[in-house]
């Protein structure tokens, strides 16, 4: 039982770390690239406008999709590693 508890704790902390990383990227591309850092990215031209505009109207959405699949893929591996899968 003790060992199972450590296993469960390790699984959960690995999950939390993964979520933290996913959410950092999530915030960076949308609030960061799309809004707050747009002035800093204004030098990078994309199709008649700048990178910040691209992040706000396209880039974030594409990154969101990649993030979810990345999370699902990594979590399924974690499930198996820690014997938590169904």
């Amino acid at each position: 039982m003790r060992q199972e508890n450590t296993e469960a704790a390790a699984y959960w902390s690995a999950n939390l770390k993964l979520i933290r990383n996913v959410l950092i990227v999530w915030a960076l591309v949308s609030f960061g690239g799309g809004i707050l850092f747009r002035p800093l990215l204004s030098g990078i031209a994309v199709g008649g406008t700048d990178l910040g505009f691209w992040f706000a109207q396209q880039g974030s959405i594409i990154v969101f999709i990649v993030l979810i699949f990345y999370y699902a893929f990594r979590m399924n591996a974690l499930d198996r590693k820690h014997g938590a899968d169904e």
């Binding site: 039982m1 199972e4 508890n5 296993e7 469960a8 699984y11 959960w12 999950n15 499930d79 014997g83 938590a84 899968d85 169904e86």
Partner: peptide, 9 residues
């Protein structure tokens, strides 16, 4: 928090 049916906890 654990996908498996009835987890260790």
């Amino acid at each position: 928090r654990v996908p498996r049916g009835a987890g260790g906890a």
